[in-house]
Structure formats: C-alpha cells, structure tokens
Nucleic acid binder design. Structure first.
Ligand SMILES: [Mn+2]
Ligand SMILES: [Mn+2]
Ligand SMILES: [Mn+2]
Ligand SMILES: [Mn+2]
Lengths: 221, 221
DNA sequence: AATATTTTTTAGGACTACCTAAATTATATG
DNA sequence: CATATAATTTAGGTAGTCCTAAAAAATATT
C-alpha cells in the first residue's frame, strides 16, 4: 500500500515501457527501450533485471519485457503527475503548450501523494492535459476518448481537434502559428495524391501535409 | 551565463553550508556539515573537494570551508526555490505550514529559471515564506528584517510574531494549537526564573517555556 | 539449411555519492 | 609542554547507473 518509492531512473524506464506497450503488439524490446530512455541497450539489460527483481515487469532473456500490474500502476502514477504538472504550468503559470514537457519531466518525479491530490483539486480535477492526453485518476484509471487521427477522416466530415500524437516543440509551434488548438473546428475538404489534406480551419481554407494530418487527433463533432 | 547545473546532492551541500555560515563565526567545519546533510564526515571531505574544484567554495584541509561568490549565488537560488514552493504549497494548495518543508526539499531541485520566475509572479512576488523567512529575489538579494527572538524582548513591550527559528513540525503544531501564527500580537508580561515567559497572546494570558520563547521571531509593533 | 545481419547479453570498467576503519592533525587538559 | 581526546582525512569498498567491446542468440537472406 502506498509506499513504493522508485528512483528517478527507474520511473523513467517504467514510463517508457508503458508507452511502448501501447505502440507495439507483444513484448517491448531492449532496443526500443534504449531508444526511448536514451541509453545503450546494454544498460537497458541491466535495468530491466533490476525492475524484474522488483516485480515491476516480466523479463525473458532475448524475448523482451512487459509490465506487471504493479509496474503499470507505477507508470500511471508517474504519467498522472506529468500531465497534472503540465496542466498546472499552462493553466496557472501561463506557459505555452510547447514549453511544458521538459519541466514536467522533472516535476513528475516528486514523491508526495498529498501533493498530487491537492494539485489535482487545485486544477479542478482536469481530465485532459494541454496536449489532449487523458490524466489518470488517483486510482490510475484512464478514460479514453474515441479520438481519430485527422488523416483517417473522410471528405466533408467536420471534426474538432482534441489532441496531438507527438507533442514536439516544432510541431506545437507550427500549430500555434496557424491558430490550430485543442477545440479548433476542422472540416475536411479533400485529400491529395501526396497524403496532404485540404481543410477548412477556423472557416478558412488551409492545407496540411501528410505528416501534420497524421499527428493531429480529432473527434467527430 | 545562467547555465550552472548542480546535482541534487551538490545543491544540498551548498545550501547546508550557506545556512551554517550564518550560524558560526569563521569557516564551516566538516562535522557541522555532516550533521546538517546527514552523511559521515568522510563523505563530506569527499564532497567539499568536488565543490572546491567547481569554485563553489574554498576548502583548506583541516580548516573548514566557506562559500565563494559563486557558491553563495547557487545557495540563494536553491533557497529562493525552496521558499517559493513552500509559499505555493500553503497559499495555493492549502497545506499547513508544518507540512510543506519535506515536499519543498524535493521541489527546490527542479531546474528551470522560467518556472521559478513565473511561480514568483503567480504568488504575487511574496517577500516571506510561510515560516517568516525572507525569499531571495531573482538576483539573490535578501531583504532582512530586524526581527528579534522573543526571549530578548523586555517586559511590557508589545510585538508581533514574524517567524520561527527552527521550523520543526512539532514546534509548528504546538503554535497552531495555541493560535500563535505569523502576525499574532504578543505582549510580554514578565519573565520567570526558569526562562519561561508570561505573555498576553490574542489578549489572553499565556506562558511559554524558554525553549519556545527562544524559537519565536518577533518585531516591535 | 547455411550464412549474414541484427539484436541482445555478458564482461569489464567508469563515475557519483556513500560507508567503515585506520591514520593523521588539531585542540584541550593536566 | 606532553598527552589525551576530538576532528578530519585517507584508504579501500559498495551500490546504482551508465559505457564499450566482445560473445551469444535470434532473425533474415540466399
Ligand atoms: Mn509531456
Ligand atoms: Mn502532455
Ligand atoms: Mn523549509
Ligand atoms: Mn520555510
């Protein structure tokens, strides 16, 4: 109950593995983890053995890794903190949505259940972070929205932007410059041969590349 | 400019040494530091050599240590963060003043100048933290108040409580229970043979031990 | 199926921050 | 001032996390 404390590094591995599990089918590979946490594969092998020892994940040599219940719950706690802090930074400290990730990477490792709960209340128990990602509740439950990637939306459908897939600074600032935000209404006018899409954004015609269309989450109106 | 990054442990040593310099006359001793940071003296010897190498302090074997300008400035940054976060926790998240220190011990190590500045603004640029300690400004300047320890106040003088010397939980909760807070008006009625003092607190007679009187900072009205 | 390539692990270190025990220097006491 | 005591440093080690290079296993290609 309650008192499991992981090191900053352990938390980063657990979070990375959690995110990777949602991207690949089976177990998560050593190389994938090493990409995500920016260490060498041999370091990953070291660390997954430590994490397996702590029952945070199941590790089979050469076969990869998957989180246990305990590991998933630890991941959710970190992700909850990350997204709450990002929300705080944007809602209360007036940061832009492209500025908050790195700071939240630090804040997510602060250990205090009381702090997280009070922060949550202070923010009005938000359901989504500034990038449209859902914020787990105190029990680690995620409410998932049936969002779709913009590039999968057929012609003439009207949707609203609800999030971004990869929230890199460059991409977020691109959206800012075009006044595309969470909540922005988008009508799909048509698709071009190169995957780019012709849209009506804020009632003005606008085209986006395949890459941009593939990074925007939208929801039917 | 700006980009000096110290490890969490280094920051704790620098902060400890800064606080000790304000308590003792000459250089700060190895043993004093080891008490403050809760490591063994031999570990302190290791670390002060590292910090001396980084020009954060001057170390003379067997003679102790004192911070350089660079070291003092690093200390002020950490203290500024600590006290701003404590203020945030009390003012915005409704923590009690005895609950915030340990959380601030973690938050003070978050590295982001933008975050600190915005937090400062969000809090309305407070001058004092919940324990009455002054908050350094962004340049590291401390405005010091001419506060006195309650036990040094002569009979019949009326003062207000402006802070506490040692802000341990037990002491703070003792004050809470007696409705003594920052801003509370105190009249000194007399002193007893054992160092205890008879007071008028919130217009009601109240006696405090020598220890309590020696831990309360007050200011003439 | 044999071989080439890629992935993963192992072996052996490095670095930070800590520790214990022993040696050294400083200080206090008779 | 000589000696006992206290403070400090040195020597040698540990734990956590990372690394490079080499070995082993898995996978892909012919
Ligand atoms: Mn983020
Ligand atoms: Mn986010
Ligand atoms: Mn404090
Ligand atoms: Mn304080």
């Amino acid at each position: 109950m309650g008192g499991l404390i992981l090191s900053l590094v352990e938390e980063n591995y657990i979070k990375a593995i959690y995110h990777l599990e949602n991207e690949v089918k089976g177990d998560v590979s050593t190389n994938a983890i090493s990409d995500e946490v920016k260490t060498k594969p041999s370091s990953v092998t070291d660390m997954v053995q430590v994490l397996a020892e702590k029952d945070l994940l199941i590790y089979k040599k050469y076969k990869g890794v998957h989180l246990t219940k305990k590991g998933k719950s630890a991941a959710m706690k970190v992700i909850r903190k990350h997204r709450l802090w990002e929300t705080f930074l944007v809602e209360k400290l007036n940061f832009q949505w492209d500025e908050v990730h790195d700071i939240a990477e630090q804040l997510e490792h602060i250990h205090s259940d009381a702090l997280v709960d009070r922060l949550d209340d202070f923010l009005g128990n938000p359901e989504y972070d500034p990038h449209g990602d859902p914020i787990p509740d105190a029990e680690g439950n995620l409410k998932s929205r049936n969002k779709k990637v913009l590039s999968h939306i057929p012609e003439n459908e009207v949707v609203i932007c609800v999030g971004v897939k990869e929230s890199g600074s460059d991409f977020l600032r691109y959206l800012d410059k075009r006044n595309i935000n969470i909540g922005t209404e988008i009508k799909v006018l048509g698709k071009e041969f190169d995957g780019s899409m012709d849209l009506l954004v804020n009632s003005k015609p606008f085209s986006v590349s395949e890459q941009v269309a593939g990074n925007l989450y939208v929801q039917p109106i």
